Amino acid sequence: MEIAITDGIKVSVETFYLPEYSVPSRRHYVFSYKIKIENLSANKIQLLRRNWEITDITGEVRNVVNGKGVVGKEPIMIPGESFEYNSGCHFPSPCGKMSGTYVMRKIEDNTLFEVQIPEFTLVPSFFNN
């Protein structure tokens, strides 16, 4: 599990290789990831945007994603609250990595700030043996 804390916002990432959806002979490797965002700050916050960079094993950036919210939501979290979601991606190579930021808003004063998403690697379990 990868973890980053920025301004009292903790982001944890857990990754999974999905062999049932992958076809290595066709260079198709599918992964899912679970993200937990915890508000450890004293502020009520809202997640507004996500910014991702998705890179394959060769170091080539496969995709840059900038969009509203996450999984169709713009969650609001009071202090001590958390939000979890699952998503996924696929690569033509067996390994890749993702990194990025969330743009958050402090509800009380409308201040915007960026929260780091820890860089994480997507690797099939058979590569770890």
Rank of each mutant, 00 (worst) to 15 (best):
residue 34 K to I: 11
residue 12 S to L: 05
residue 41 S to Y: 08
residue 47 L to F: 10
residue 55 T to P: 06
residue 74 E to P: 04
residue 36 K to A: 08
residue 106 K to S: 04
residue 22 S to E: 10
residue 90 H to T: 15
residue 80 G to A: 10
residue 20 E to F: 07
residue 101 T to F: 10
residue 16 F to P: 05
residue 95 C to T: 15
residue 97 K to Q: 11
residue 103 V to D: 04
residue 122 L to Q: 14
residue 8 G to R: 05
residue 62 R to C: 07
residue 96 G to S: 11
residue 40 L to P: 08
residue 56 D to N: 13
residue 53 E to R: 12
residue 122 L to A: 11
residue 31 F to N: 00
residue 39 N to L: 02
residue 15 T to V: 05
residue 114 E to T: 14
residue 13 V to F: 08
residue 111 T to D: 13
residue 50 R to V: 12
residue 53 E to P: 04
residue 122 L to T: 13
residue 48 L to M: 08
residue 90 H to G: 02
residue 11 V to R: 02
residue 32 S to F: 08
residue 83 F to S: 06
residue 38 E to Q: 05
residue 33 Y to A: 00
residue 128 N to R: 12
residue 39 N to A: 06
residue 32 S to R: 09
residue 53 E to N: 09
residue 111 T to F: 09
residue 33 Y to L: 06
residue 108 E to F: 00
residue 30 V to R: 04
residue 67 G to Y: 04
residue 76 I to L: 08
residue 23 V to R: 15
residue 128 N to L: 10
residue 20 E to A: 09
residue 48 L to E: 15
residue 93 S to C: 09
residue 45 I to S: 08
residue 98 M to K: 09
residue 71 V to I: 04
residue 86 N to K: 14
residue 3 I to A: 03
residue 77 M to C: 00
residue 20 E to G: 00
residue 14 E to A: 12
residue 54 I to W: 14
residue 76 I to D: 04
residue 18 L to R: 07
residue 80 G to L: 00
residue 127 F to T: 13
residue 102 Y to G: 15
residue 90 H to F: 11
residue 63 N to M: 13
residue 64 V to R: 12
residue 75 P to W: 07
residue 38 E to L: 05
residue 32 S to C: 15
residue 73 K to Y: 01
residue 109 D to W: 01
residue 33 Y to T: 05
residue 42 A to N: 08
residue 17 Y to H: 05
residue 46 Q to T: 03
residue 21 Y to I: 15
residue 24 P to G: 11
residue 4 A to K: 01
residue 50 R to Q: 08
residue 41 S to Q: 10
residue 56 D to Q: 09
residue 23 V to A: 14
residue 23 V to S: 14
residue 55 T to E: 09
residue 50 R to T: 14
residue 104 M to L: 13
residue 35 I to T: 03
residue 107 I to W: 02
residue 52 W to M: 11
residue 65 V to W: 09
residue 4 A to S: 10
residue 38 E to N: 06
residue 68 K to H: 09
residue 60 E to C: 07
residue 57 I to E: 14
residue 108 E to W: 02
residue 57 I to P: 10
residue 89 C to G: 15
residue 91 F to M: 15
residue 10 K to V: 10
residue 65 V to L: 01
residue 10 K to D: 13
residue 109 D to R: 01
residue 111 T to Q: 11
residue 10 K to M: 14
residue 104 M to H: 06
residue 120 F to Q: 10
residue 79 P to T: 05
residue 91 F to P: 12
residue 26 R to H: 11
residue 70 V to S: 00
residue 85 Y to E: 03
residue 97 K to D: 11
residue 28 H to S: 13
residue 34 K to H: 13
residue 54 I to S: 01
residue 61 V to G: 09
residue 97 K to T: 05
residue 104 M to I: 11
residue 41 S to A: 06
residue 88 G to L: 01
residue 127 F to H: 13
residue 39 N to R: 00
residue 92 P to S: 07
residue 124 P to N: 12
residue 45 I to V: 07
residue 109 D to E: 08
residue 63 N to W: 03
